[in-house]
């Protein structure tokens, strides 16, 4: 039993780290742009497919796919921002419209992935040597440990950026007070494009990690990650990046521990219980910072 619990904890951390990244990118988008990205899961899964193509067609190992995905998705996000958001800004209720628009983008993106890769589940056949490592009394696959290490590095880099650099502080300032940041002479359009690109880059990197951690993915896996992202964002408090990181890890741990203690079918609903519970009892998220609209 102790081994099972220990296993649950380690895997909870690994999976939770991925959930944290999925959530933090979505919460940045909402915080800065007030855009509800219902296509976030598809962005993430597109990252998994990028890693798949890089490895199966060009022999690029997943570790190298991480920086490539970051660059490719950053550029794609920057472009997509200018295609999508200015249209959105002209509507009477951009926030609500963003939800509908990105729902459409989500369907279109899933369809595009289906067209390119067909409905089969894909997996990356890359194996690290050694295949697994001993962590205390248990064995964990090297791929999962590598993913955890990357998650930690990315999270620390992101936190340093947001809290120690002026552009990072400007991003947080835009979340705190979107009108005031413009008065400071900050071009909110460029800053928003950057936030969109950064969120896309994080989503792409997360996709590569998902390809490492989970056995398989297909063009329809996106929706699942969108739901997870929303749970994490609500749990962490809307627009709160630190909250999202913590909430992702908490959610991953809860989900994995649930598989230890609860029957399989019950474990599935843990996420929704957390989501509903948060909305009922702690609507401003675990860190309790009230979000100013």
């Amino acid at each position: 039993m102790e081994l099972l619990i220990l296993n649950g904890l380690v895997n909870g951390l690994i999976v939770g780290g991925i959930y944290a990244l999925v959530g933090v990118s979505l919460t940045l988008l909402y915080g800065v742009l007030r855009v509800v990205n219902f296509a976030h899961g598809e962005f993430v899964i597109a990252g998994s497919f990028l890693a798949f193509v890089l490895f199966s067609s060009f022999g690029v190992p997943p570790l190298l796919a991480v920086p490539i995905a970051a660059v490719v998705f950053f550029a794609a996000g920057w472009g997509l921002y200018y295609v999508l958001i200015p249209r959105l800004a002209r509507s009477d209720d951009p926030e609500l419209m963003s939800f509908l628009m990105f729902y459409g983008v989500s369907i279109a993106a899933a369809a595009l992935l289906l067209l390119l890769f067909e409905a089969d589940s894909r997996t990356i056949d890359y194996t690290f040597t050694p295949v697994s490592m001993q962590v205390g009394p248990i064995y964990v696959s090297t791929a999962r440990l590598v993913a955890l290490a990357i998650t930690i590095v990315v999270s620390i880099a992101l936190a340093l950026f947001l809290f120690k650099t002026l552009p990072g502080k400007a991003l947080r300032a835009a979340i705190m007070n979107p009108e005031a940041i413009q008065i400071m002479g900050v071009d909110i359009v460029r800053l928003s494009a950057f936030a969109f690109a950064l969120a896309a880059a994080l989503a792409g990197v997360t996709g590569v990690l998902i390809a490492l951690v989970f056995p398989a993915f297909n063009p329809f896996s996106g929706a699942e990650y969108t739901i997870i992202a929303f749970i994490v964002v609500v749990l962490g408090g809307l627009g709160n990046p630190v909250g999202a990181l913590l909430a992702g890890v908490l959610f991953g741990l809860a989900e994995q521990m649930a598989t230890v203690f609860l029957p399989q079918a019950m474990a599935q609903i843990v996420g929704f219980v957390i989501l509903v519970g948060t909305i009922f009892f702690r609507p401003s998220g675990i860190l309790g910072v009230r979000f100013k609209r």
Partner: peptide, 12 residues
């Protein structure tokens, strides 16, 4: 401009 609504970034 110093607007009527607080224009500070409270958590900075």
């Amino acid at each position: 401009l110093v607007p009527q609504q607080r224009s500070l970034f409270n958590e900075l």
